[in-house]
């Protein structure tokens, strides 16, 4: 089996080269692109398994690159950016990025995120009739949820929300994304509703928002269902 392929799109040559060397050391095949257009070209030629994407590119915004890639591909995209502001991050995530990492970051953190992204890319959990994560089991056909063997009593909305989060485990889901998927496009601003349901769900899962096992809050951005394997 060949090594997983990673495309690094960043205009910082030094960072790109350091990333490449480090990733190659961890047995990934790496290609580089220094702007958005060449990134899109390399993507078609290289067919990477994961894309590492900077948001501030000389020719186009990384958000636009995300949108462009998502038109045709489901390949996981991890955004690497110095931008700390939530607006930028949310924009990238809304356009289909799976995860983001704020520069500067340690390689351990990046490698872990890459592993999660690769798993997401290779298995589509929603296809099975059952989603199983640790002692949490969601039976899609029966619409039941069991935690450590005991059945949880969830309202239909709580169930839909949990299923959506678990289906996208490991991926950062923005408030609007979750609201659109669970409640509908007209509810994308009702963050408080989402917060209420997340709290209810956490209570039923026995999850602590301070040290979460299942649902992690990314403040100002959204939520991430933790992948127990990572």
């Amino acid at each position: 089996m060949s090594n997983p392929r990673i495309l690094v799109v960043d205009d910082e040559a030094q960072l790109r080269r350091a990333l490449r060397r480090s990733l190659e050391g961890h047995a990934y095949d790496v290609r580089e692109a220094d702007d958005g257009a060449s990134g899109l070209r390399e993507f078609d030629a290289f067919k990477p398994d994961v894309v590492l994407l900077d948001l501030m590119l000389p020719d186009m915004s990384g958000v636009d690159v995300c949108r462009e890639l998502r038109r045709k591909h489901e390949t996981p995209i991890i955004v690497l950016s110095v931008a700390d502001d939530e607006k930028t991050k949310v924009a990238a995530l809304d356009e289909g990025a799976d995860d983001y990492l704020t520069k500067p970051f340690g390689m351990d953190e990046l490698l872990a995120r890459i592993r999660v992204a690769l798993r997401r890319g290779s298995t589509n959990r929603a296809q099975g009739s059952e989603i199983s994560m640790g002692d949490l089991v969601i039976d899609i056909e029966k619409r039941t949820v069991r935690l450590g063997g005991d059945e949880l009593h969830l309202t239909p909305t709580e169930y839909t929300l949990l299923k959506y989060l678990a289906t996208n485990a490991g991926k950062v889901l923005t408030h609007p994304m979750i609201l659109r998927a669970v409640w509908g496009a007209e509810y994308t601003d009702d963050t408080h509703v989402l917060r209420t349901y997340i709290n209810q769900l956490r209570a039923k899962l026995g999850d602590d928002s301070g040290s979460p096992r299942y649902i992690r809050t990314d403040t100002g951005i959204g939520y991430r269902f933790l992948d127990p394997e990572s």
């Binding site: 960072l15 500067p104 390689m107």
Partner: peptide
């Protein structure tokens, strides 16, 4: 300022965290 300071730091951090990573024989 944050862009100008963090960009070189990102390169440094990537290199340093790779060097201290003992799982790879550099």
């Amino acid at each position: 300022i944050s862009h100008d300071l963090k960009t070189p730091l990102a390169g440094i951090k990537t290199a340093v965290s790779s060097l201290i990573d003992t799982s790879v024989e550099w």
